[in-house]
């Protein structure tokens, strides 16, 4: 049972990897950006667990900026992905403009909340 699951797991990873390689590079850039954001968030959580949550507002703003960036990037990816049928008549420039606007609001709020 365990052997079959491990074999299945390996096969699974193989298929995942092969499917992923097929995605266009622009989407891969977005994915990289998302990973960077999530990674930074995890670092901050670990730091808070070690040091304690004293300037809690700074912690919140730091973590939420990372999470927010990740979420917005994922939204952009959804909108820009050509395989998504729901968004086929949405011009990518419009999607990008919305993304920029949302990020601006996010960072403005973060700056306010950080201090």
């Amino acid at each position: 049972m365990a052997r079959s699951t491990s074999k299945d797991a390996q096969a699974l990873f193989q298929s995942l990897r092969s499917a992923y390689v097929a995605t266009p590079s622009s989407l891969k850039i977005i994915d990289l950006y998302v990973c960077f954001a999530v990674f930074t968030a995890i670092i901050q959580v670990v730091y808070m667990a070690v040091v304690g949550s004293f300037p809690f507002n700074s912690f919140l703003s730091g973590v939420l900026s990372c999470v927010g960036t990740a979420v917005l990037a994922v939204c952009l990816r959804i909108q820009v992905n050509k395989e998504n049928k729901e968004f086929k008549d949405l011009p990518p420039e419009r999607a990008f403009a919305d993304f920029v606007l949302c990020n601006l609001v996010l960072h403005l709020v973060i700056m306010n909340f950080l201090g």
Binding site: G68, V71, L72, V74, Q79, I110, F113
Partner: peptide
């Protein structure tokens, strides 16, 4: 669309 409607709202809204 549900994801786009909900996820940014939670993050930005909480902030």
């Amino acid at each position: 669309r549900l994801y786009i409607a909900y996820a940014p709202l939670v993050v930005l809204g909480t902030l």
